[in-house]
Design a binder for these strands. Structure first.
Lengths: 206, 206
DNA sequence: CTTCGTCTCCGACTTTCGATGGATGCCCCG
DNA sequence: CGGGGCATCCATCGAAAGTCGGAGACGAAG
């Protein structure tokens, strides 16, 4: 049984979510909070597995803050963030605060339910529309590999040797090495294997 | 809405599954098949997102076969395989035939429902009891790396150089290379990077 | 007890990789 | 327009990775 606390300043939204979740036999809504403070308080006293957290409370944008505080509790319930707009600038903040997932309020019911189950299981559940946007914002500032560099790195990541890469791209292996040197420095690593590991971590590969 | 076709030779089982799924608003059972041939036929004519497929039809074990044929259709519905026994030797066959998931018939209702949703979303849904067993059978025959070899490979997979691995394991880098040579030959590759790729594919790493 | 297989370890040789340094062409902006 | 920044390309040379052959340990068969 997944115990859930709903935190949203709008009663209608809370009721809607509750109605959706009440239809699921393995999910029980144990509390509702109308303010960030209440959300943290209920998360502590009711020890739910999951908190559904709105990002916009009244005027102050303290949803991310509340998320951080909830995640700092001893029981540390998972937090699933809800918002109306996928352009919300606080997506990053919420994720960094420890949110397991991020959903738009107009998501189809089964998507929300699936997300609740996934989040309660410790998995991350991002609305597809958001995942891409988020990824861009997370990795763009970090690395900006040129198209050619990515191309080379991708082949290396498939296990190709320098000469194989050179052949496939119709360039000299000296050139391949040069591209790799640049990739290494941009990724802050010193070998092809480490570069692959790092590239995967940053989402550049795979 | 997830449209489902149920394929099972036992009417009672079909009714049971239908009853379970009818309780879900986002799932609709659009057809029932009592034979593998019917299953394929309905999968083609009704174009469901998902086919729930029994492995045992009458006497012949053609569930895997039917799965293969269903997956070969133009619409290519996902296939979720059901069976009574987790010792069934055809688990592998079904998965290789393109089944997205594998469930025991005595699984709790919510697990089945969750599996249906997951499978319809293109995710794989394996009963935990089966996942482990399956994993063993899938990778054991392919590779049997020694504990030491895996240890070395794991570090290499983190981007470590031979000398770093040697230091961490308190052995010479000549020995590290030796282990890697064995790993390479067992995995059928010729470089550390290719080894990492292959090891990930086989589930040895990560 | 021997033989075989397997795992673990190692040193010396060859190949590949990565570092260094430099060339060209492109685009943008002061 | 003329330099600064960047992407792409290339050659050389020391360092790392990979190849080869073999040694010691240990257990399972023969």
């Amino acid at each position: 049984m997944i115990h859930v606390v709903i935190a949203d300043d709008h009663p209608v939204v809370r009721a809607g979510i509750r109605a959706l979740l009440d239809g699921e036999s393995d999910i029980e809504v144990v509390g509702e909070a109308a303010t960030p403070d209440d959300a943290v308080r209920l998360a502590q006293s009711l020890t739910p597995e999951l908190v559904l957290m709105d990002l916009q409370f009244g005027q102050a944008v303290t949803g991310a803050d509340a998320t951080r505080r909830v995640r700092a509790l001893e029981a540390a319930p998972y937090v699933l963030v809800l918002t109306n707009y996928d352009t919300d600038g606080d997506i990053l903040g919420a994720v960094e605060a420890g949110a397991s997932g991020y959903l738009l309020k107009d998501a189809p019911p089964h998507e929300l339910i699936a997300a609740v189950r996934a989040a309660a299981a410790g998995e991350s559940a991002l609305a597809p529309a958001i995942a891409g946007r988020l990824m861009e914002r997370m990795r763009a500032p970090h690395v900006s590999l040129s198209a050619r560099e990515i191309e080379v790195l991708r082949l290396v990541g498939e296990g190709a040797s320098n000469s194989e890469v050179a052949q496939r791209l119709h360039i000299t292996d000296a050139t391949v090495k040069s591209h790799l040197v640049h990739v290494f420095s941009k990724l802050g690593v010193a070998s092809r294997t480490a570069a692959i590991v790092e590239a995967r971590k940053l989402g550049v590969l795979r």
